[in-house]
Structure formats: C-alpha cells, structure tokens
Amino acid sequence: MASPLAQFEISKLIQLNVGDFDVSFTNSSLVMVLSVVFILTILFFGLKNLKIVPSKIQSLVELSYEFISTMIGDNIGKEGLKYLPFIFTLFFFILIGNLIGMMPLSFTWTSHIIVTFAIAFFIFLAATFIAIFKHGLLKFLGFFAPSGVPKPMLLLLVPIEIISYISRPISLSVRLFANMMAGHTLLKVIGGFVFVLGANSFIIGGVLPLAFLVALTGLEIVIAFLQAYVFAILTCLYINDAIHLH
C-alpha cells in the first residue's frame, strides 16, 4: 500500500539556485502563489467599483475586513488596528492555503512544519520586539514574573513562564501543521479504503468508506477555516500580550 504521507512530498517544478541555496519553484510554491493570486483576484474584483451600497463581491471583501477588525477589536483593542493588514493577510493566506489544499490532487502548504514554523516564529519575534520597544527590556522581563506571587514561588514560576513563552511559536506552528497533516492523511487513508474495498467487493464495499470520506471532507473544510481562525486569533492574543503586558 502506498504511504498516505506521499501527498506531502515536495516536487521541484523549476530548478532555481541562489548562491549555494536551492530555492527551486516547487509544488508548494505553486500553491502559495495560487493562494496569493486567488486572494488578490477576489480583492481586486471586490474593490474594483467601490459603491456605498456594495455589490455581492464587495460585501464579501468588506465583511472579511469587518471580521478581522472585530477580531482585533475584541482581542487587542483599538491599538491593535494598525496590525490589521498583517492579520488580514495572515488569516486569508492560511485560509486559502488550507482550502486550496482540500482540492483533489493539489498540495497543502500549511501541512509543512517549516512553513508554519516560519510564520509562527516571525510572529513570536515581532511580538517580542513590539513588547520591548513599547515597554523597555526591564518591563518586558517583568512579564515573566507575575505580580502578587510570593517570592519563593517565583523560582518556580519564572522558568515556567519563560518556557511557556518560548513554546508559543512551537505550539502555534505545530497546531496548524499537525491538524492539516492529520486531516489529509486521514482522508488519504479512507480514500485508500474506498479503492481497496471497492476493488475487492465489486464496488459495493467502497460505498460506506466513500460516504465517510465525503463527511470527513466536510469536516476538513471546517477545520481548514477553524485552524486559520485559531492561528489569527492566537496571533492577536500574542500581540495583545506584547502591547499590554498583563
């Protein structure tokens, strides 16, 4: 039986080298570019003829904007609105990446740990820098020592806080990567069942796994949205921590 993980394989489409680095255009890059093109197309047509009373596609774009700005307003507050373009880009980039990955025979770039980790690590670094620039290094370090805690407890709490802070990018990236990988692997396994059982029982045996596959595909689409949402909302929370240093 074929490995269900083979769908995550990176295949080079165009060989490219910059210096010693291999920056080939791969199937992953292709889907990334497709995601960008898709988002830009929707935005372009949505904002082509701006009207006070919006058309359907303009409503879609404006509702997306409102969705993100509400998310930021709820989780960060008014100071967070300057990060709106970033969170908007992040959310829709991941969402469209996840959704394009749901199409048969395409590729899910969000199922690669290096990609999600790169994004999460950038967010982690950015949040840390925002905190240091806004509050100074000392105050930022005070973030790891919660106030109102007896001093001996700090010996225990400060390492825990530091570890939890440092593990943020890891948890953030692994959450998205693992969800996408697990979902697609499961779909592949069930898809294999459809094929094998159907082939061995004159198609009849494949009906049940096929129904299950359809249901799972629906679930995966929900997860695709949910994980993008979780990623964006956790980014909001980290930026909120950086701005307010509770």
Binding site: I10, D22, F25, S29, V36, F93, A118
Partner: peptide
C-alpha cells in the same frame, strides 16, 4: 530553504 524563500516572497 526553498519553502521558506517562497513563503517569504509570497507572504
């Protein structure tokens, strides 16, 4: 390297 490069470029 390739994935990170294209991620940064596209993002």
């Amino acid at each position: 390297v390739s994935q990170t490069f294209w991620l940064i470029l596209t993002f």
